[in-house]
């Protein structure tokens, strides 16, 4: 599951022409560390929903990679 999420995050980064992540770290913050803006997060949530059927931002409070994993468990 970690690999799949890493791959989705990297797809979003590649599409924006940003550097992809090599190591997966659950503490990474989506906005401040990975550098996602609102549009990136919107794309991320649509891609994750397509894969897992879960809207991770439904209640608006996902800040880190680890919190995504918790939501889709």
């Amino acid at each position: 599951m970690d690999d799949k999420i890493l791959q989705i995050i990297n797809t979003v980064l590649t599409n924006r022409g940003k550097k992809t992540l090599e190591v997966f770290n659950r503490d990474l913050r989506l906005r401040d560390d990975i550098g996602f803006d609102s549009l990136d997060l919107a794309e991320l949530t649509v891609r994750i929903e397509a894969e897992y059927g879960i809207d991770i931002f439904e209640d608006g409070i996902v800040n880190t990679v680890g919190e995504i994993l918790k939501k889709i468990k």
């Binding site: 590649t14 609102s38 919107a42 949530t45 649509v46 608006g60």
Partner: peptide, 24 residues
């Protein structure tokens, strides 16, 4: 458009190709 809970909508395109080209 595809609705999502972060911002109202994001834009999606469905594309039929005649020759190969990458998303990038």
């Amino acid at each position: 458009s595809k609705t999502n809970s972060v911002i109202g909508n994001i834009i999606v395109a469905d594309v039929i190709l005649s020759k190969p080209i990458t998303e990038v």
